[in-house]
Design a protein around this nucleic acid. Structure first.
Length: 586
RNA sequence: GGGCCUGUAGCUCAGCCGGAUAGAGUACCUGGCUUCGAACCAGGUGGUCGGGGGUUCGAGUCCCUCCAGGCCCGCCA
């Protein structure tokens, strides 16, 4: 509907231009807006105001000329000039009624568009280090990234979801060490347990003991150390915490030799598998799990640095190798190779984005936690420095959800093991409620998540309000069958029978859905869909309370059933875009 | 010190490329089930859009400045 009217306006502009009444063909300026006030019609355009400004002409006269040049259309009841030069469109009732047939014909594809033109897009999200289970902070990135991916698919993009596994860094060594130390406890090599000897900056979560127990079941004491070795393990360690844990890692590698790799791999693979399973239960499926280690072992980091060097963006200083990020708008230059020749975390990410760029995606979207925002600038800088078009790489930051239990703020740290896992959240509030809550705020909006409230007030969650509308409609159709009434579509419904204002409000809201999806996809803003669905559910519930559907008069009944069936369809389509279910009954 | 995000009703938040009288939920008040599901609906109370200046036909929206909160600023990952 909106696009149709926009085309009419664009034709009017072209016509005026052809007649010489307009300096330039400003069809690109055409924009329509849904009105807030019904007295302003259904759609309004400020086109004459914009053109009047550019041409120093009287906007009201321009508006009159535009209206005069407007092609005839059955959709348009009347067109008016208002205020300083707005053009107000009043859409005919017949045109509104057509949306019902459109929706029912399109079914699950209603709302889809082709604005993506089949372009390939890579969406990378979550990408949490496999050093522990996912927690509620990761949940937001998962819900957001997946909803964006669904939106982009609906908008005609070819979408690939990817998870980047940081399986090569020091954090993973710390994890492996932590598991080994717990394993030594299992072997009885450290009588009474490690107590205070366990490094404070190691991973202290209970799941580490679980991994150690797995190892002990599989290997017995074979990966252990005798009491003497275990005793020497903690002798003469550096005072400093970071140096201390690095020394422990070195001793662990030394004690285990080649089997260190097996320990490391077991911990990593187990946690990745757990994360994958966790996300699947959350309704999120990735197409590809990209391992950082494949970059390291495949020589991709050297290649990426060489590519930067070839373009003159690399220099040496203090024995280290630097990327001149400041040439690309970053705050400071960044090290890629340390003085000892090892690569930095950033170097691996340059290689990863080099790889992403070379895979030929038209659009690359990184969904990052807000704590990585300082990091976004340097990645974008490197991407451009590698010769890629900067616009191809888009980043969206997801702000943290601050957790509360009542008034109390919940502190979270993977290392100390104090966190609420995604699994616990799922079990407490359910997938649908959690996902809807996560995406019902803008990604860059800080979020307070009160766990007590989420649990006790789950019935007040807007998601139930929307799902209830869907279930209610399904229930009406069940009633129809129970009463032995004929199928609503036995004869083609005559929607001319719909004349109530509540019915036209519903049709208008229904017709907005494709616009909402388009806008939400274009701006990576799933929250728009969440707000839209609440509006639609509200219009439906109001209609439900005002008018009976199962009227004894078949013509009116079938028309109304057709209308609410299209509401059901749009509710289901919208919820699906957010990864939320649309139950038949609740 | 620098950078990013945020500031809209008591609370939690929307507000599309600047558009007409700033909207929801929640809380509070008043009504509505003998009838398709009351997890619902109707009505009401509630606003200096953080402060100040600027741009213009028009500013919650753009620019400048100040204030407040969150996060980040390593040859860690």
């Amino acid at each position: 509907m909106k696009h149709h009217l926009e085309r009419l306006l664009a034709q009017a502009v072209a016509e005026l231009h052809r007649r010489g009444a307009l300096q330039r063909n400003a069809a690109g300026l055409v924009q329509l807006q849904r009105t807030r006030n019904p007295r302003h019609g259904d759609f309004a355009s400020n086109l004459a105001l914009l053109l009047g400004k550019a041409a120093a002409a009287d906007p009201r006269k321009l508006a009159a000329d535009l209206i005069g040049a407007l092609p005839a259309s059955d959709c348009v009841e009347k067109v008016e000039i208002a205020g300083p030069g707005f053009i107000n469109f009043f859409v005919s009732r017949t045109a509104w009624r057509e949306v019902i047939g459109e929706i029912r014909a399109a079914g699950t594809t209603y709302g889809n568009s082709a604005i993506g033109r089949g372009r390939a897009v890579l969406v990378e999200f979550v990408s949490a280090n496999p050093t522990g289970p996912l927690h509620v902070g990761h949940g937001r990135g998962a819900a957001y990234g997946d909803a964006v991916a669904r939106l982009l698919s609906a908008a005609g993009y070819r979408v690939r979801r990817e998870y980047y596994i940081n399986d090569a860094g020091r954090q993973m060594d710390i994890l492996a060490l932590s598991v080994w130390l717990r394993y030594l406890e299992q072997c009885g090599a450290t009588p009474g347990g490690l107590g205070d000897a366990f490094p404070a900056n190691g991973y202290q979560g209970e799941y580490v003991r679980g991994l150690a127990a797995d190892l002990h079941r599989q290997h017995g004491d074979a990966l252990g150390a005798d009491a003497d070795t275990a005793g020497r393990l903690f002798a003469n360690l550096p005072e400093d915490g970071e140096a201390r844990i690095d020394a422990l890692i070195a001793r662990c590698k030394c004690a285990l030799g080649e089997t260190y790799r097996a320990l490391f791999d077991h911990a990593c693979a187990t946690l990745v598998e757990r994360i994958r399973d966790d996300l699947l239960r959350f309704g999120v499926r990735f197409d590809h799990w990209f391992s950082e280690r494949t970059l390291v072992e495949g020589g991709d980091i050297e290649r990426a640095i060489a590519a930067l060097a070839e373009r003159g963006h690399i220099y040496e200083k203090d024995g280290a190798t630097w990327f001149r990020a400041t040439d690309f708008g970053d705050q400071k230059d960044r090290a890629v190779l340390r003085a000892d020749g090892s690569h930095t975390y950033f170097a691996a990410d340059i290689a990863y984005h080099f790889n992403k760029g070379e895979r030929g995606f038209d659009l690359i979207l990184d969904v990052l936690g807000a704590d990585h925002h300082g990091y976004a600038g340097r990645v974008a800088a490197a991407f451009e420095a590698l010769g890629f078009e900067r616009k191809r790489l888009q980043m969206r930051l997801v702000q943290f959800a601050t957790l509360y239990r009542g008034r109390e703020k919940v502190q979270m740290s993977t290392r100390t093991g104090e966190f609420v896992t995604l699994q616990e959240l799922r079990e407490e509030v359910g997938v649908d409620a959690a996902r809807f809550f996560y995406v019902s705020r803008k990604n860059d909006q800080h979020m307070d998540f009160d766990l007590d409230l989420a649990r006790t007030q789950s019935a007040d969650n807007p998601v139930y309000y929307i799902q209830y509308a869907h279930a209610r409609i399904c229930s009406v159709f069940r009633q129809l069958r129970d009463k032995g009434l004929p199928d609503a579509d036995a004869a083609a419904p005559d929607y001319q029978r719909l004349t109530e204002s509540g019915e036209f409000e519903l049709m208008q809201t229904l017709s907005r859905f494709p616009e909402v999806v388009e806008q939400a996809a274009g701006g990576f803003e799933p929250h728009l869909v969440a707000y839209y669905l609440r509006d639609l559910a509200h219009d439906f519930h109001a209609y439900y309370n005002a008018h009976p559907f199962l009227s004894s008069e078949a013509g009116l009944r079938n028309a109304r059933l057709g209308l609410i069936d299209s509401v059901r369809q749009v509710l289901a389509n919208g919820l699906d875009l957010l990864g939320v279910g649309a139950p038949d009954k609740m």
